[in-house]
């Protein structure tokens, strides 16, 4: 099956109708920019970890070298979106309203991982926190706090 032929909305709708959790791996494969970054999803029960395998095109500072701040931000934002989609079964993708990224350490040219936690699920808005790390989970390279709007459906 060609993932490009499946829309995120079709994946969400199918899961909703079947009463199951959406296939997050299929979902990231259906998002062109997530595919371009190379984001993967590892789901163990209800615990979701996203993986950003290192690739040369993710570099923002070739001198250090370090991952581009926008790459780390986009990766955290995608992680937050996937967590929200997983926990809040809607027919539409949530939309970011605002995000705040703290860069704690430079992203080295190795694989990066991230997880997100919903802090508050409101009727229309979700408050969510996400963090990314590399070799050591206790040494995060960046954290994100943000609000996602749940489209009415």
């Amino acid at each position: 099956m060609n993932p490009q032929s499946v829309s995120p909305r079709a994946i969400l709708t199918a899961a909703r109708e079947a009463g199951t959790k959406p296939d997050l791996a299929a979902l990231v494969a259906a998002i062109p920019y997530a595919r371009y970054l190379g984001i993967q999803v590892d789901r163990k029960g209800t615990e979701i970890t996203t993986i950003l395998p290192f690739a040369q095109h993710l570099i923002g500072n070739p001198v250090l070298p370090a991952l581009h701040g926008g790459v780390v931000g986009g990766f955290l934002e995608t992680t937050a979106m996937l967590q929200a989609i997983f926990e809040v079964a809607g027919a539409e993708m949530p939309r970011p309203v605002d995000i705040n990224i703290d860069y704690l350490r430079s992203g080295r040219p190795v694989d990066t991982y991230a997880r997100a936690v919903i802090t508050k699920e409101g009727r229309r808005v979700i408050n969510i926190h996400a963090h990314a790390w590399q070799e050591e989970h206790d040494r995060p390279i960046a954290t994100l706090r943000g609000h996602l709007l749940i489209p009415e459906s």
């Binding site: 995120p8 062109p32 581009h68 990766f75």
Partner: peptide, 20 residues
Amino acid sequence: VGDPETRIIHGGVVTSLLDN
């Protein structure tokens, strides 16, 4: 693109653009 149905650019792209 962030959503192939709407063809809207992914938020992460805007993040990269603004950061840079």
